[in-house]
Amino acid sequence: MLISWRYRERNTLVQKLDPRARWIFLLAVMFSVIQFWDLRFLLFFFGLALLYYHLARLTWRETRRVWTFVLILVVIIIGINALITGRGGSTAVLRDTRHTVWEARWVVPGVGWVIHPFITVEKIVFALAQMIRMLTIAILFIPVAYTFNPNHYGVTFRRLGLPDKVAFAMDLAFRFVPTLARDFSLTLDAQRARGYEVEKLSGGLIAQIRKMAPLIVPVTINAIVGAEDIVNAMDLRCFGLRPRTWLEELRYRPRDYALIGFSAAVLVGSILVRTLGRLGDFWVPGAILRLFGF
């Protein structure tokens, strides 16, 4: 099995930004967007996310699998939420002034249970707002795997304030990945040579899980045995006694300060709009009501 990071150098504006500034931007926008249900505000964040995604210059070919997953998830979750469970998440959707577009009343034969599905204009608008919100967050965070250098995670989060040891654990984890992937591949081949057919696991769910043990156990136990040498080597070099230095040094440039300033403005602005302005609640556009004849 070949393990390859989705990351590659693309010479884009997004990748030229300091990783710390990018994390601050992503988190600020995420915590801003989740405060709103008003389509007008959501569309602003959606546009911002699309711009960021565009600047990351990802291709459809490399992201189509994750997009398929995200779109299926969005449709399933919004479908269950709006139709099956019979309401939207925002309390505004439950207001008495419903504009019903479609409803039915079915009786389950034998038990006599009544099922009463209905769709209102409010539910449709809520589903639309929900979809835009979920897609905005997905669009913001999908580029993370493709544009952040795995070798920079440790130093990035150290400089963002994480303790030295935790940041080093992050750094070390990314370095372990290729070795462990190779070990897994060797173990898989060795077990296959003994007649183990992972693609043809038979039996029930429990039996199938138990049959995964010949793959998982040797890889894990071998890794633990090998890790003792690393612990000893690090202890001998007095790891953790003094603050450590990092091979990669991160430096903010003017554009990074600009992005951080913009991120802070977006977050603070969103909080002020919600708390002081009392704007951003669920809103049904008059045009959509008219579209359905109300």
Binding site: A169, M170, D171, L172, F176
Partner: peptide, 10 residues
């Protein structure tokens, strides 16, 4: 530190 990294990578 080492076992955290190892567990995460695994």
């Amino acid at each position: 530190v080492v076992y955290s990294a190892l567990g995460a990578a695994l």
